[in-house]
């Protein structure tokens, strides 16, 4: 009798061993797939990207230095950074608001709004630019002349660029926050409310800390997208040298003017930022989504 009682426990492997993911069977197919995928990504992504780096550093740091000494280029980089920061700020504020609205409240048209939120991601940036010009264009837009009457030019100046950038980066923050908000639920907030916390306190003390990783992730994505926006900005900015030319527009301009070194150097700077963004996201993500 005793041995039958003992045996089952002996057969269950130790906890650690059980937790280990099942060993992958290594067959020729495994290696074939691995090879195909690596080669595909190498030719499509890794090699082209690394070429930009080598092209930039053909003459050592020379091209980067001359780039940073060019006053027009400095203005373009500053403008890009400025626009990106504004777009991040706007999208963060409204992203949090919209996400709360979508998760916490029921209202007619919610499903429609939810679906429409994805529109900026799938619409062509050129169409975005065109749409903004049609509405806010200084000469014959819907609201443009009125705003121009107030001394506020939107199109062909910085506000237009900010709007275009905000538009294309809009869904990123919301898509990041909605699942997090859905997951945390409202029990804690209800508890806080019953203890007498007001709306602001509840948001500041409970909601915000629990979505802060979602926000961080959203900010990084929005930043990457904003810095890199090209098509929509091209339509609305007018591309005035030293005034409304962003860094991405400068890449095109330089390349078309046969200043390949300059184009590669600018592209390198932009690529660095975006790669840094993905790496940061990669570091944050495992903590956030175990």
């Amino acid at each position: 009798m005793a041995d039958t009682l003992v045996r089952p426990t002996a057969e269950v492997p130790p906890v650690e061993e059980r937790r280990r993911p099942p060993r992958v069977r290594k067959t020729p197919v495994t290696y074939l797939l691995r090879f195909i995928v690596t080669a595909y990504l190498f030719f499509l992504v890794a090699w082209p990207v690394s070429l930009v780096v080598t092209n930039t550093f053909d003459n050592g740091w020379e091209s980067i230095r001359s780039l940073l000494e060019d006053p027009d280029m400095v203005v373009a980089l500053q403008l890009s950074a400025y626009v990106a920061v504004w777009s991040v700020v706007i999208n963060t504020l409204f992203g949090v608001g919209m996400s709360l609205l979508l998760v916490r409240y029921e209202f007619p048209g919610k499903r429609l709004l939810n679906a429409l939120l994805d529109l900026p991601l799938s619409v062509s940036p050129i169409v975005v630019g065109l749409a903004l010009v049609l509405v806010y264009g200084g000469r014959n837009g819907w609201f443009g002349p009125t705003l121009a009457g107030w001394g506020l030019d939107v199109i062909f100046s910085t506000p237009g660029i900010i709007m275009a950038t905000t538009f294309v980066a809009l869904p990123l923050m919301i898509r990041e926050l909605v699942p997090v908000l859905e997951e945390i639920g409202i029990e804690q907030e209800q508890a806080a409310e019953s203890l007498g916390a007001n709306g602001l306190q509840r948001f500041w003390r409970i909601t915000l800390p629990s979505i802060k990783w979602g926000i961080t992730y959203g900010v990084v994505l929005t930043l990457a997208r904003s810095l890199g926006e090209f098509g929509a900005v091209k339509v609305v900015s007018g591309n005035v040298l030293g005034q409304t030319r962003t860094a991405t527009l400068a890449v095109e301009e330089k390349y078309l003017n046969f200043d390949q070194q300059g184009a590669y150097a600018t592209a390198f700077l932009l690529a660095m930022v975006s790669v840094a963004c993905i790496v940061i996201v990669g570091i944050i993500r495992p903590k956030n989504h175990p």
């Binding site: 030719f43 090699w47 082209p48 990207v49 070429l51 930009v52 092209n55 940036p125 994505l221 990457a224 997208r225 810095l227 890199g228 926006e229 090209f230 098509g231 991405t248 527009l249 890449v251 095109e252 390349y255 184009a263 590669y264 592209a267 932009l270 690529a271 975006s274 790669v275 963004c277 993905i278």
Partner: peptide, 15 residues
């Protein structure tokens, strides 16, 4: 994450 214009340049450098 790569700006689309940079993506174009990147591909152009290899192909």
């Amino acid at each position: 994450a790569l700006p689309t214009i940079v993506a174009g340049l990147v591909l152009l450098s290899l192909y």
